[in-house]
Nucleic acid binder design. Structure first.
Lengths: 254, 254
DNA sequence: GCAAAAGTGTTATAGGTACACCCATGA
DNA sequence: TCATGGGTGTACCTATAACACTTTTGC
């Protein structure tokens, strides 16, 4: 690396973009915001913004998350921190032509959040929405046009979203991350519906129950029960300390 | 995102750093280069350099790899491309203070290569070396000081190397990436020694043989045999087309 | 013959799938 | 009483771990 010489390297803008996922009404949904300025004015895009001069990448992502949703991110380094959404770095996108204005490198982050109150974005409810991830990804006119399918996402955001969804799908296999989609206390059935929504499959409720309650460190019973799903009261659980599941959850094959 | 206004965002330098791993003499080794200029002059660091104005991130990583080692990266999008090292994006490091000179965001990449002829770096053999990854990571004086243990790596490169090693260790579990450490044709025993070196464990040769030859798409026999390891001649294999292994290889627990 | 590495067979056991069956609540 | 979801028991099957044993070379 050469000594400090500002003319020796080209200047870049660095942004963070957020893939914010949640499970609503049995379906995996992503947060999108409507762009107010060109390029791609009026199109949907992932939330994000410039990294400031004095903040690190995770900090910028957490700040953008709070500004766009009111969520605050959980800091895994501090287990006593208040409850918060899971945030992790996803990947970095730096094609020279990805932004027509200038050279922008975007460090994408993945956020997993429980089902939320309505999103807010600068107070304008029309400029932020949750939508099923397929509505952003299935852009070929395979079936009847649905009103759910907006124009393709701006920039390379469809690719970023697809990478984030795939990360989430694979990571809930071998980690306890699926609990990040649940409220603090949840039932085994609610957790199962998270897996079913993220993977897009049906799971056997009986084997699922045995498996998650038998995996050490995954779930700890709170002692309470709930009947909010109807039927027999279900035990309530919190996420246990384990982050890596052994044995892992197995995603059914195609 | 605000409209184009160069004063609205701080300028960053963007670099790529490379975690280049190989297996030599039954041990997982990383490539390091000696820094010629401050900061950290004379210390070992990961190879890397600035991203140019017109190249994308993977292209910059492939260029640096060729410049520092003579290796060229395999393009997974073109299976007919000539044999080459595996290259993938690892993670991005952007702490505001990670480089004392200026704000630098580094997009780290992971390279897996077969055992190589001696490294070269600008023709100066003294400025590049392979060393076991533990010699860079075990920086506490746990045992007798070895000549193998140089000063800690410059910048945050010890963290980057550790992340790269962990990525390699986990990825050979469920993908066929371990073959990237082998020459084009290799024996089951050679592949087993790769797993043993990367994981730092001993594996049962008999069960290993059954498992890798029984996993569809992992290995294809070339028909040839070799006796270069001594003992009974062993069949030679090439990497099969499969990238995801099903069932996965299981890393023995602690 | 002997050492060394390759490769096969066999057995015990853990974990998964499928599904019959019972439990506790609200309507 | 019935519908709904929660939860347990059990039989079958697949994959793995452990290890005895045979094969084919070099020396």
């Amino acid at each position: 690396m050469p000594p400090y010489d500002p003319s020796a390297f080209p200047p870049f803008a660095v942004t963070v973009d957020l893939v914010v996922l949640t499970v609503r009404r049995h379906s995996l949904c992503a947060l999108a915001v409507r762009r107010g300025e060109p390029p791609f004015q009026g199109r949907w895009a992932l939330p994000g913004g410039f990294v400031r001069a004095d903040e690190d990448l995770a900090g910028a992502a957490a700040r953008e998350l709070a500004e766009e949703t009111g969520l605050h991110a959980h800091d895994p380094a501090d287990p006593n921190a208040p409850y918060g959404a899971h945030l992790e770095q996803l990947a970095t996108y730096g094609d020279p032509k990805r932004d027509p204005r200038m050279r922008v490198v975007s460090v994408a982050h993945l956020v997993l959040a429980p089902d939320l109150p309505a999103p807010r974005a600068g107070g304008d409810a029309h400029s932020a929405r949750w939508a099923p991830v397929e509505s952003f990804l299935d852009q070929e006119p395979t079936s009847a046009p649905e009103e759910e399918a907006p124009a393709p996402l701006a920039f390379d955001h469809a690719q970023i979203l697809e990478d984030g969804v795939e990360r989430a799908r694979s990571k809930i296999e071998y980690s306890s991350l699926a609990t990040a989609f649940c409220p603090q206390e949840f039932t085994v059935g609610e957790l199962r519906r998270v897996y079913e929504a993220v993977w897009g499959v049906a799971l056997d409720p009986r084997n699922f129950h045995r498996k998650v309650t038998g995996t050490p460190g995954f779930l700890v019973p709170t002692g309470g029960t709930t009947t909010r799903q109807g039927g027999r009261p279900a035990q309530l659980f919190r996420a246990g300390g384990a982050t890596l599941l052994n044995p892992p959850m197995l995603r059914p094959e195609a």
